[in-house]
Simulated assay, not measured.
Amino acid sequence: MTDFSTFDVADYLENEEVIAEYLTAACEDENSDVFHAALADVAKARGITREGSGQAVHDELKALKAMPLTARGLS
């Protein structure tokens, strides 16, 4: 039997460009759950947890809003 390691996309979201591409791809899916899962992956990649993350989440949303519309897949 072959053992496989667990894949976690958050391990590969290393910079703003990769994150923007990942979120853009998620925006293109008709299922909104895909985008929500992508946002959770980005939060995990950045070390944001649910507890005590109010300001961090606010800062992430602020950064997302500052992205060009094309990077958010909304152009």
Rank of each mutant, 00 (worst) to 15 (best):
M1A: 11
T2G: 03
D3I: 03
D3P: 00
D3V: 06
F4M: 07
S5M: 10
S5T: 15
S5Y: 02
T6H: 11
T6S: 11
F7T: 06
F7L: 12
D8S: 14
D8I: 05
D8C: 07
V9A: 15
A10K: 11
A10Q: 08
D11F: 04
D11Y: 04
Y12L: 12
Y12R: 09
L13Y: 02
E14M: 02
E14D: 12
E14N: 11
N15M: 03
N15G: 00
N15K: 02
N15I: 04
E16H: 08
E17S: 10
I19F: 05
I19S: 04
I19W: 09
I19M: 08
A20R: 10
E21R: 08
E21I: 00
Y22L: 01
L23C: 05
T24G: 03
T24H: 13
T24N: 14
A25G: 07
A25I: 01
A26M: 10
C27K: 11
C27M: 14
E28I: 02
E28D: 12
D29V: 14
D29E: 13
D29S: 14
E30Q: 08
N31F: 05
S32R: 13
S32G: 06
S32C: 05
S32V: 13
V34A: 08
V34T: 11
F35K: 09
H36S: 14
A37N: 11
A37D: 15
A38R: 05
A38N: 06
D41E: 01
D41T: 05
K44H: 09
A45W: 01
A45F: 08
A45E: 04
R46H: 07
I48K: 05
I48D: 03
I48A: 00
T49N: 07
T49K: 15
E51R: 09
G52V: 08
G52M: 05
S53N: 13
G54S: 12
G54F: 08
Q55Y: 09
Q55I: 07
A56E: 14
A56T: 11
A56W: 06
V57C: 02
V57S: 00
H58Y: 08
E60L: 15
L61S: 06
L61Q: 07
K62I: 00
K62M: 08
K62A: 10
A63W: 15
K65H: 09
A66M: 08
L69E: 12
L69Y: 06
T70L: 01
T70H: 13
T70E: 15
T70A: 13
A71N: 03
A71T: 06
R72K: 13
R72G: 07
G73W: 07
G73P: 07
L74R: 12
S75C: 06
S75T: 10
S75H: 07
